[in-house]
């Protein structure tokens, strides 16, 4: 009886070993699950091709996006967007923001940032148009405060929408593009002095981007992983000394017409 019990015991051990050995061999071939970006999913997105809204021809789809906004912000948003795009001069950012239209712009922006994905995209459209149609690149007649202001507005938008954009078909790609633009604007700000560098925007952008992407904790956030997958050069560059150089470079590819001087 004892001998039979011992045999059963050994047979049980041998069976477990066999299963574990097979698992140890087959699990070696396990590949990571394919990464599916939100816009690649089967379900139809609320807004198709959202990056078109951020391009120079975004105005052509203005009505489509406006229809998704609440009535209270639809009119102000439309006025601001049309007003910005109708500008022929190239005022500095701070000067334009101090006009009545600029103040309406900031109020509409604040209102939109409390809303859903469509409102988030509408807010980003305003910000990108601001970067496209006003002068913020530091120069002889343009102070660094202009680029810092654009950077601050982009930063507050990213703080609200970026962390939840990794799973949002509408905001996934626009949020990544906004990060690139933010990097470019902030780099322009900290490289603005003719001699040396401006430390304040550098420190602010460093802390923000590292927290946003999870580089401080050495564990990338969902947004950090999305940025790494879509723009690996920009993500890896965040750990370099000139940490926004790669972001800025990629931004030129995504927004070739935005140069901080209205393309003039």
């Amino acid at each position: 009886m004892a001998r039979r019990s011992a045999s059963v015991h050994v047979a049980l051990l041998a069976s477990i070993c066999g299963v574990l050995f097979l698992a140890a061999i087959f699990l070696r071939g396990v590949n990571p699950p394919p990464r599916v970006a939100p816009e690649q999913r089967a379900e139809r997105p609320v807004i198709s091709a959202p990056m078109q809204f951020l391009g120079p021809s975004g105005m052509k789809r203005l009505a489509e996006l406006a229809a998704l906004l609440p009535e209270s912000v639809r009119e102000p948003w439309t006025r601001c967007t049309v007003g910005l795009n109708a500008q022929t001069k190239c005022p500095s950012t701070i000067d334009w923001l101090s006009t009545p239209r600029g103040q309406e712009f900031e109020r509409a922006l604040a209102e939109l940032q409390r809303g859903d994905s469509a409102q988030g995209l509408a807010a980003l459209v305003l910000l990108v148009d601001l970067a496209r149609k006003t002068k913020w690149a530091p120069g002889v007649f343009v102070s660094v405060e202009n680029s810092e202001r654009v950077g601050a507005l982009l930063q507050s938008w990213l703080a609200v929408f970026a962390s939840k954009s990794h799973d949002d078909a509408t905001l996934h790609e626009p949020a990544l593009a906004a990060t690139l633009l933010y990097g470019r604007v902030m780099r322009a700000a900290y490289r603005s002095p003719a001699l040396g560098r401006s430390e304040a925007p550098y420190a602010r952008a460093f802390a923000f981007t590292h927290e946003l992407c999870g580089l401080q904790a050495k564990a990338p956030t969902d947004f950090g992983r999305a940025l790494k997958a879509r723009h690996p050069q920009a993500f890896l560059g965040l750990e370099q000394e000139d940490f926004l150089a790669a972001t800025s470079e990629e931004s030129r590819l995504v927004f070739p017409d935005i140069d901080g001087a209205c393309g003039k």
Binding site: L13, C17, P32
Partner: peptide, 21 residues
């Protein structure tokens, strides 16, 4: 039997890694 079990468990652990996700 137990030594073989230990080898199998070790082999299983050596077959795995955690990716960035």
């Amino acid at each position: 039997g137990y030594s073989c079990l230990l080898i199998a468990i070790g082999g299983l652990l050596l077959a795995l890694q955690l990716d960035g996700d």
